[in-house]
Amino acid sequence: MSRFLFVLGSSRRDGNTEQLARHAARALPADVERQWLWLGDHPLPTFADTRHDNPLPPPTGNEKLLLDATLAATDIVIASPLYWYTVSNSTKAYLDYWSNWLRVREADFKARMAPKTLWGVTALAEDTSQAEALEGMLRRSAEYLRMRWAGVLLGNGSKPGDIRNDTEALTRAETFFLPARV
Protein backbone atom coordinates (compact mmCIF):
# COMPACT_ATOMS: atom_id res chain seq x y z
CA MET A 1 0.00 0.00 0.00
CA SER A 2 1.24 3.48 -0.85
CA ARG A 3 1.53 6.10 1.85
CA PHE A 4 2.28 9.69 0.84
CA LEU A 5 3.80 12.10 3.35
CA PHE A 6 3.27 15.73 2.37
CA VAL A 7 5.83 17.91 4.15
CA LEU A 8 4.44 21.45 3.95
CA GLY A 9 7.19 24.03 4.28
CA SER A 10 5.40 27.29 3.63
CA SER A 11 5.42 30.06 6.21
CA ARG A 12 1.64 30.33 5.80
CA ARG A 13 -1.10 27.74 5.81
CA ASP A 14 -2.99 27.05 2.60
CA GLY A 15 -0.47 28.96 0.49
CA ASN A 16 -0.06 28.51 -3.24
CA THR A 17 2.33 25.57 -2.87
CA GLU A 18 0.02 23.72 -0.49
CA GLN A 19 -2.97 24.39 -2.75
CA LEU A 20 -1.06 22.99 -5.72
CA ALA A 21 0.00 19.90 -3.73
CA ARG A 22 -3.57 19.30 -2.54
CA HIS A 23 -4.87 19.68 -6.09
CA ALA A 24 -2.37 17.07 -7.28
CA ALA A 25 -3.16 14.73 -4.37
CA ARG A 26 -6.84 14.62 -5.38
CA ALA A 27 -5.81 12.49 -8.37
CA LEU A 28 -4.27 9.80 -6.18
CA PRO A 29 -6.33 6.63 -5.92
CA ALA A 30 -8.57 6.35 -2.85
CA ASP A 31 -6.48 3.53 -1.38
CA VAL A 32 -3.36 5.72 -1.16
CA GLU A 33 -2.88 6.99 2.39
CA ARG A 34 -2.04 10.66 2.80
CA GLN A 35 -0.42 12.40 5.74
CA TRP A 36 -0.10 16.18 5.73
CA LEU A 37 2.42 17.77 8.11
CA TRP A 38 2.82 21.54 8.16
CA LEU A 39 6.30 22.21 9.52
CA GLY A 40 4.98 25.32 11.29
CA ASP A 41 3.12 22.96 13.63
CA HIS A 42 6.24 20.85 14.23
CA PRO A 43 9.21 23.23 14.50
CA LEU A 44 12.66 21.75 14.84
CA PRO A 45 15.44 23.29 16.92
CA THR A 46 18.25 24.89 14.97
CA PHE A 47 20.21 22.08 13.37
CA ALA A 48 23.54 21.28 15.00
CA ASP A 49 26.01 19.06 13.17
CA THR A 50 27.00 16.60 15.87
CA ARG A 51 28.38 13.81 13.72
CA HIS A 52 31.83 14.07 15.31
CA ASP A 53 30.50 14.27 18.86
CA ASN A 54 29.24 11.54 21.14
CA PRO A 55 26.54 9.21 19.83
CA LEU A 56 23.27 10.93 19.13
CA PRO A 57 20.48 10.61 21.64
CA PRO A 58 17.31 9.06 20.24
CA PRO A 59 15.04 11.67 18.61
CA THR A 60 12.22 13.06 20.74
CA GLY A 61 9.33 15.47 20.30
CA ASN A 62 8.84 16.98 16.85
CA GLU A 63 12.03 15.39 15.57
CA LYS A 64 10.73 11.92 16.44
CA LEU A 65 7.32 12.68 14.95
CA LEU A 66 8.92 13.80 11.66
CA LEU A 67 11.38 10.88 11.59
CA ASP A 68 8.61 8.35 12.22
CA ALA A 69 6.37 9.89 9.55
CA THR A 70 9.25 9.96 7.08
CA LEU A 71 10.12 6.33 7.66
CA ALA A 72 6.46 5.23 7.49
CA ALA A 73 5.93 6.82 4.07
CA THR A 74 6.46 5.16 0.71
CA ASP A 75 6.49 8.56 -0.99
CA ILE A 76 7.70 11.87 0.43
CA VAL A 77 6.46 15.10 -1.12
CA ILE A 78 8.47 18.19 -0.24
CA ALA A 79 5.98 21.02 -0.74
CA SER A 80 7.94 24.22 -0.29
CA PRO A 81 7.57 27.57 -1.97
CA LEU A 82 10.65 28.87 -3.70
CA TYR A 83 12.46 31.18 -1.26
CA TRP A 84 15.69 32.71 -2.51
CA TYR A 85 15.97 30.07 -5.25
CA THR A 86 15.62 27.07 -2.96
CA VAL A 87 13.39 25.58 -0.27
CA SER A 88 12.04 27.47 2.74
CA ASN A 89 13.91 27.67 6.02
CA SER A 90 11.66 25.13 7.76
CA THR A 91 12.02 22.70 4.85
CA LYS A 92 15.79 23.09 4.86
CA ALA A 93 15.84 22.40 8.62
CA TYR A 94 13.79 19.21 8.07
CA LEU A 95 16.22 18.06 5.36
CA ASP A 96 19.21 18.97 7.56
CA TYR A 97 17.86 16.59 10.19
CA TRP A 98 18.17 13.79 7.64
CA SER A 99 21.92 14.09 8.29
CA ASN A 100 21.40 13.28 11.96
CA TRP A 101 18.94 10.49 11.19
CA LEU A 102 21.64 8.81 9.11
CA ARG A 103 23.49 8.28 12.39
CA VAL A 104 20.57 7.06 14.47
CA ARG A 105 21.50 3.39 14.39
CA GLU A 106 18.06 1.99 15.18
CA ALA A 107 16.48 4.11 12.42
CA ASP A 108 18.57 2.46 9.67
CA PHE A 109 17.68 5.64 7.78
CA LYS A 110 19.66 5.23 4.57
CA ALA A 111 18.52 1.66 3.93
CA ARG A 112 14.90 2.47 4.78
CA MET A 113 14.86 5.55 2.54
CA ALA A 114 16.19 3.73 -0.54
CA PRO A 115 12.89 2.15 -1.66
CA LYS A 116 10.97 5.43 -1.27
CA THR A 117 10.13 8.05 -3.89
CA LEU A 118 10.88 11.74 -3.42
CA TRP A 119 8.68 14.38 -5.09
CA GLY A 120 8.72 18.17 -5.03
CA VAL A 121 5.95 20.75 -5.34
CA THR A 122 6.65 24.46 -5.41
CA ALA A 123 5.05 27.74 -6.30
CA LEU A 124 7.21 30.61 -7.42
CA ALA A 125 6.72 34.15 -8.60
CA GLU A 126 9.12 34.08 -11.51
CA ASP A 127 9.79 31.83 -14.48
CA THR A 128 10.34 28.17 -13.72
CA SER A 129 14.07 28.29 -14.50
CA GLN A 130 14.45 30.02 -11.11
CA ALA A 131 13.71 26.68 -9.41
CA GLU A 132 16.85 24.91 -10.67
CA ALA A 133 18.62 25.02 -7.28
CA LEU A 134 15.54 23.73 -5.46
CA GLU A 135 15.13 20.90 -7.92
CA GLY A 136 18.85 20.09 -7.81
CA MET A 137 18.88 19.95 -4.01
CA LEU A 138 15.95 17.55 -3.87
CA ARG A 139 17.17 15.39 -6.76
CA ARG A 140 20.66 15.07 -5.28
CA SER A 141 19.20 14.22 -1.87
CA ALA A 142 17.19 11.43 -3.48
CA GLU A 143 20.25 10.19 -5.37
CA TYR A 144 22.39 10.16 -2.23
CA LEU A 145 19.84 8.01 -0.42
CA ARG A 146 19.22 5.89 -3.55
CA MET A 147 15.59 6.97 -3.59
CA ARG A 148 13.57 7.26 -6.77
CA TRP A 149 13.43 10.90 -7.89
CA ALA A 150 10.04 11.76 -9.39
CA GLY A 151 10.57 15.44 -10.21
CA VAL A 152 9.06 18.77 -9.21
CA LEU A 153 5.61 20.14 -9.97
CA LEU A 154 6.02 23.87 -10.55
CA GLY A 155 3.32 26.50 -10.42
CA ASN A 156 3.20 30.27 -10.56
CA GLY A 157 1.87 32.17 -7.58
CA SER A 158 3.01 35.05 -5.44
CA LYS A 159 -0.04 36.54 -3.75
CA PRO A 160 -2.39 34.21 -1.86
CA GLY A 161 -4.60 32.30 -4.27
CA ASP A 162 -2.58 33.13 -7.41
CA ILE A 163 -2.04 29.43 -8.12
CA ARG A 164 -5.71 29.13 -9.08
CA ASN A 165 -4.90 31.28 -12.13
CA ASP A 166 -2.11 28.98 -13.33
CA THR A 167 -4.27 26.62 -15.34
CA GLU A 168 -1.25 24.91 -16.91
CA ALA A 169 0.16 23.97 -13.48
CA LEU A 170 -3.25 22.79 -12.29
CA THR A 171 -3.58 20.60 -15.38
CA ARG A 172 -0.08 19.12 -14.83
CA ALA A 173 -1.00 18.53 -11.18
CA GLU A 174 -3.85 16.24 -12.18
CA THR A 175 -1.42 13.63 -13.51
CA PHE A 176 1.74 14.48 -11.54
CA PHE A 177 1.44 11.64 -9.03
CA LEU A 178 0.18 9.03 -11.48
CA PRO A 179 3.65 7.48 -11.96
CA ALA A 180 3.42 6.47 -8.29
CA ARG A 181 1.24 3.54 -9.27
CA VAL A 182 3.62 2.21 -11.95
Rank of each mutant, 00 (worst) to 15 (best):
G61K: 10
D127F: 07
G9I: 09
R146T: 11
W149A: 03
L154D: 00
L170S: 06
P55N: 00
R13F: 15
N156Y: 12
Y85H: 13
D96W: 04
A73T: 07
L44G: 06
Q35K: 09
I78T: 01
L8P: 06
D108E: 14
Q19W: 02
G155P: 07
H23Q: 07
T175F: 03
L134R: 03
R13P: 08
D14S: 12
D31K: 06
I78V: 13
K64W: 09
V77A: 00
P59N: 05
F176A: 04
E143A: 15
D75K: 05
T175S: 11
G61I: 04
A142P: 10
A72P: 03
R22I: 13
F177L: 14
R181G: 11
A131H: 08
E174H: 01
S11A: 14
M137R: 04
N156H: 15
T50M: 10
K110L: 12
D108K: 12
W38D: 12
R34T: 11
G9P: 07
E132Q: 14
P58R: 13
T86C: 07
W38N: 09
L44K: 05
F176N: 03
L124P: 08
T128V: 13
G61N: 09
D53E: 11
I78W: 02
G151D: 05
L28Q: 08
G157H: 00
R181C: 08
Y83P: 01
L20R: 03
A27E: 09
L71I: 07
W149E: 01
F6T: 10
P160S: 02
R26N: 04
P57R: 11
R164E: 13
A107W: 12
A24W: 00
F47M: 04
K92E: 06
W98I: 03
E143T: 15
T128E: 15
T46C: 03
A69I: 03
T171R: 11
A93Q: 14
N89P: 05
T46S: 08
P115L: 05
M137W: 08
V104Y: 11
L37R: 07
V32R: 01
D108Q: 14
D49I: 10
Y94F: 15
A125H: 13
A111R: 14
P29L: 11
P115G: 05
E106F: 10
F47W: 07
L28S: 04
L20N: 04
